[in-house]
Simulated scan of single mutants.
Amino acid sequence: MPAPPLRRRMACWLYEGVLMFGVVVAAGLVFSIAAQMRHALEHRHAMQAFLFLVCGIYFCWFWSKGQTLAMKTWRIGITDRQGRPLTQARAAWRYLLCWLWFLPPLALSAPFHLPAAEVGVLTLGWIAVWALLSRFQPEGQFWHDVLAGTRLTDARAPKTPASPAPAANADAA
C-alpha cells in the first residue's frame, strides 16, 4: 500500500507545526509559571528538555492511537509495517528519528556560528531535501518511517463501487 502523496503529507506536516505551536506555548507557560521564570534565558535548558518531553508525549500518544489531530484532518494514518497500531516504544523511536527533519542543519550550523537567517535557509533546504528523498524509497515512505518500522497510510474512506440503479418496477404502471 503506497504512502499518501507527498504534497498531502507535507501539508499535514505544516499543519502539525501550527498545532504544535499551541502545544509548545501552553506547555511553556505552565513551565515558566511553575519555575517562576523572570527572564527568558532563566532555566532555558530545563525548559527545552521539558518541551522535548511534552512534544514526545503528544506524538507518542496520538501515533499509538493511529493519528494526530493534523493527520485526522488530512486523512493520513500511521501503522507499523504489518498494518497494526504503533506501540508506545515504536512511537517513541519514531519521535526520536523525526528529529532528522531538523538536527542535521542545526548540527552543521553550530560550528560555523551562522546567523539565524542562514540557519533558517539551511533548515528549510534540508526539509525540502529530506521530503524529496521519500521519492527514492520504493513505497514512498519518509526515510525516518523506514528506519522506525512505521508507515503512513491513506486513511480516506475506500471508494465503494457504484451500486446499479434500481430496476423500474414493472407492476407500478
Rank of each mutant, 00 (worst) to 15 (best):
R38H: 11
R38M: 06
H39G: 03
A40R: 05
E42L: 06
E42D: 14
R44I: 12
H45Y: 14
H45G: 15
H45Q: 15
A46N: 13
M47Y: 01
F50C: 04
F50S: 08
L51D: 05
L51H: 09
L51C: 10
L51F: 09
F52D: 10
C55Q: 12
G56K: 06
I57L: 15
I57P: 06
Y58L: 02
F59H: 11
C60D: 04
W61Q: 00
W61V: 03
F62S: 14
W63G: 04
S64E: 05
T68F: 07
T68P: 10
T68A: 10
T68N: 09
L69C: 00
A70V: 03
A70T: 03
A70K: 08
A70F: 03
M71C: 05
T73P: 04
T73G: 00
T73H: 07
R75Q: 15
I76R: 04
G77R: 05
I78F: 09
I78T: 03
I78V: 15
I78R: 05
I78M: 08
T79R: 09
T79A: 13
T79L: 12
D80F: 06
R81A: 13
Q82E: 15
R84G: 07
P85F: 00
L86H: 04
T87Q: 07
T87M: 05
Q88N: 04
A89W: 13
A92E: 08
W93F: 11
R94D: 04
R94C: 05
Y95I: 12
L96Y: 03
C98A: 15
C98W: 10
C98M: 14
C98Y: 07
L100N: 12
L100E: 10
F102L: 14
L103N: 04
L106P: 01
A107V: 08
A107W: 08
L108P: 13
S109G: 14
S109T: 15
A110G: 02
P111K: 09
P111E: 12
L114G: 10
P115I: 01
A116C: 00
A117H: 12
E118V: 07
V119N: 00
V121C: 11
V121W: 13
T123K: 09
T123V: 09
L124H: 02
L124D: 00
G125I: 08
G125H: 07
G125W: 11
G125C: 14
W126I: 05
W126P: 02
W126N: 08
A128M: 13
V129E: 01
W130G: 00
W130M: 09
A131M: 11
A131F: 14
L133K: 08
L133I: 06
S134I: 03
S134P: 00
Q137E: 15
Q137F: 13
Q137H: 14
Q137I: 15
P138Y: 06
P138V: 02
P138K: 13
E139M: 09
Q141N: 11
F142P: 02
F142N: 07
W143G: 04
W143Y: 09
W143N: 03
H144G: 01
D145F: 05
V146A: 04
L147G: 02
